[in-house]
Amino acid sequence: MLLVVTYSRAARRDLRNVCRAHEETVVRRFGRAALFEATGHGAFLACRLREKHSDDVQVERTRPFNEFADADPEVREAAAAYEARDEPSTPYRRFAAGTDHPDPAALKRRDLPDGR
């Protein structure tokens, strides 16, 4: 997919107009941003917005997140355990202390596998 992010009022207006006119290519709209299908038409629309608005439009190629291929089992297990915690107001740092769950500092340093 192509993530198109706008940084000016004019670029947002044109993104909104493009999304309305080409709904078949728009995967999702987020106000200042939209996801386009990774097709020639999606690329055309993204390039057209970049051409017109230059640095006020950012385009990134994305791919869906597959939690089973992209996240380590211990990360998934920690997330599941944290969401099942007894006290909903307990911060993760305190929840993970003294357990086998990864601490927040370690999670922040850990890169996701490329998975391509």
Rank of each mutant, 00 (worst) to 15 (best):
L2Y: 14
L3C: 06
V4M: 03
T6A: 01
T6Q: 01
S8T: 09
R9P: 04
A11Y: 01
A11L: 03
A11K: 00
R12I: 00
R13Q: 11
R13T: 10
D14V: 01
L15K: 00
L15G: 00
R16Y: 13
R16L: 11
N17F: 08
N17Q: 13
C19K: 03
R20Y: 08
A21F: 05
H22N: 15
E23D: 12
V26C: 06
V26Y: 04
V27E: 12
V27Q: 03
V27C: 01
R28S: 15
R29A: 15
R29G: 10
F30Y: 09
F30R: 12
F30H: 15
F30S: 11
G31C: 03
R32N: 03
F36C: 03
E37R: 14
E37T: 06
A38I: 00
G40V: 06
H41G: 07
H41Y: 08
A43E: 14
F44S: 09
F44E: 11
L45H: 02
A46G: 06
H53N: 04
S54W: 08
D56Q: 09
V57A: 08
V59P: 05
E60W: 12
E60P: 01
E60L: 09
E60Q: 07
T62E: 06
R63D: 07
R63S: 13
P64I: 05
F65C: 13
E67P: 09
E67R: 15
E67K: 10
F68P: 01
F68W: 13
A69V: 08
D70Q: 05
D70F: 04
D72Q: 12
P73E: 15
P73Y: 13
E74V: 14
E74M: 12
V75L: 15
V75N: 05
E77K: 12
E77C: 07
A79W: 11
A81R: 08
A81T: 02
A81K: 05
A84D: 13
S89E: 10
T90F: 04
P91H: 10
Y92I: 02
R93L: 07
R93E: 15
R93A: 15
F95W: 02
A96K: 05
T99L: 05
D100N: 10
D103A: 00
P104F: 07
A105M: 12
A106I: 01
L107V: 11
R109E: 15
R109W: 04
R110G: 05
D111A: 13
L112H: 07
P113V: 11
D114R: 13
G115W: 04
G115A: 11
